[in-house]
Design a protein around this nucleic acid. Structure first.
Lengths: 263, 263
DNA sequence: ACCTGAACACCGTTCAAGT
DNA sequence: ACCTGAACACCGTTCAAGT
């Protein structure tokens, strides 16, 4: 029984962080009745159409052709529903086996995948920021991330902070991306272009605004006007990531080409 | 005309980012009537008492002894009110003159002050995350921060990302701090201890939980159980900050013997 | 066992009417 | 000029009642 590790994801018992949730409906009934899964699915549909501010229990019920009160047999509350959506984001995502030789690439992949996951549903970053992955289902992901840091050789107290730092960066970056899109959508398209408003225009406006600032007061903002807001978020995302990765690398025992402190 | 820089904070014209706002009430009337400032003040009072989820226009009106509709003469909407609260957070805060010799200390001070500002009102990090400091009033702060990066010698595209990276870190860290306190409050104290619920207990619970995980599946989480959640957030905050600062420092041309100032 | 209907106690925002 | 009162179109959640 010592190889229980290789067995399954081995979801641990609920942590003190999480609230209890009503027991699942045990037997799967006949003609596709409501289920927790269907409620979550409908919630994603509403989210993508209306955004988080338009995501109400009543809208989810309408999406399912059902009364509001019917939802409460399957989810404990709206907060519970949001937590389920947050958790479902990690479905089918595995942190790879930590490889000390490739820890930086593994981290890059992890972060990029995380961003893509958040981009897969509207306002998902806002939902993600409101949660912490310390629930039983998500702890394996945390463990996998910590494994990368520790087997790479990072000191424990650095490894303990690194996961939160990177996750916060991902959430924050995508949150900001979403804000630009929202602004562009609400300024530009009155009725159409709901799906993919080209915020390129807004980026251009902001660049012009920064470039038009008085030179005497805002020399640096003017100088960086072309870089602060760009339409290629992918590059900007990677740069921030590299800053963090280089910071982490500076804590490794021997990495000769970088300024390493002697403590 | 060239020394306009030394004149005043020189608030630039509104950026494309910001929405219009109803014109301020011009003349200050007699007997302390409503004003934008009083509305914001009342909103902070409600926020500190009820939290962001309990902050409603109706509660703010009640705080002022006034009808809800009266508020709309002074703020354009609830979103507008939240933006005013966000902006007011920066009042009386100056980014220091950039000193290339002391850029790391200046950044440390900036970040610590930012965290303290967020901690000064309940749920303030949640409000902060929903905003971007690209409004006319806040651009001087952004400029001051960029000045520190650029005069330190960081490449432009690194400087352009560094501000957002650090701000995101601050917001994210304080957001998480607040979540712990909320959890502790709603688990423990039923009626009393509203102001300062000791979440020390909850931290202990989480540590025990991590330490109790099956060794086979969660070796790293177990090993770091004492570090992941601690009651001294100050240290944890500084560690994340140091990771970022070292990452930034790695982009400087040659700074061989001077790593980040250690505690 | 599962869902409906109705109710409760809230929301943000608007607008005619008062003073 | 400034505020009130009432209304509109929403919320999350609960619970007795139906089938």
């Amino acid at each position: 029984m010592t190889d229980a590790a290789a067995d399954s994801p081995a979801t641990p018992p609920p942590s003190p962080w999480e609230r209890e949730r009503p027991a699942r409906t045990h037997a799967a009934p006949a003609r596709t009745p409501l289920s927790r899964e269907r409620v979550v699915e409908a919630a994603f549909a509403v989210l993508d159409r209306q955004g988080l501010d338009g995501l109400s229990m009543r809208q989810v019920a309408a999406e399912l052709g059902v009364t509001v009160s019917a939802l409460y047999a399957h989810v404990h509350s709206k907060d519970d529903l949001l937590e389920l959506m947050y958790t479902r984001l990690f479905d089918g995502f595995e942190v790879p086996e930590a490889d000390p030789e490739r820890w930086q690439e593994q981290l890059l992949d992890f972060a990029r995948a995380g961003r893509q996951r958040l981009l897969s549903h509207r306002d998902m970053a806002r939902i993600s920021m409101a949660h912490v992955p310390f629930t039983a289902e998500l702890l394996p992901h945390v463990e996998g991330l910590l494994a990368i840091f520790r087997t790479a050789g990072l000191p424990d107290r650095i490894a303990a902070e690194a996961g939160g730092l990177i996750s916060t960066y991902i959430d924050g970056f995508v949150l900001e991306e979403g804000m630009w899109q929202d602004r562009a959508a609400q300024q530009g398209g009155d009725a159409s272009s709901l799906a993919r408003p080209d915020w390129r225009e807004m980026a251009g406006e902001m660049q012009n605004y920064f470039a038009s600032l008085p030179e005497a007061n805002f020399p640096h903002l003017r100088a960086l006007s072309g870089l602060m807001v760009t339409d290629s978020s992918d590059e900007r995302f990677d740069i921030g990531l590299q800053i963090i990765l280089r910071g982490l690398a500076s804590y490794l025992p021997d990495q000769p080409d970088r300024p390493v402190p002697d403590d």
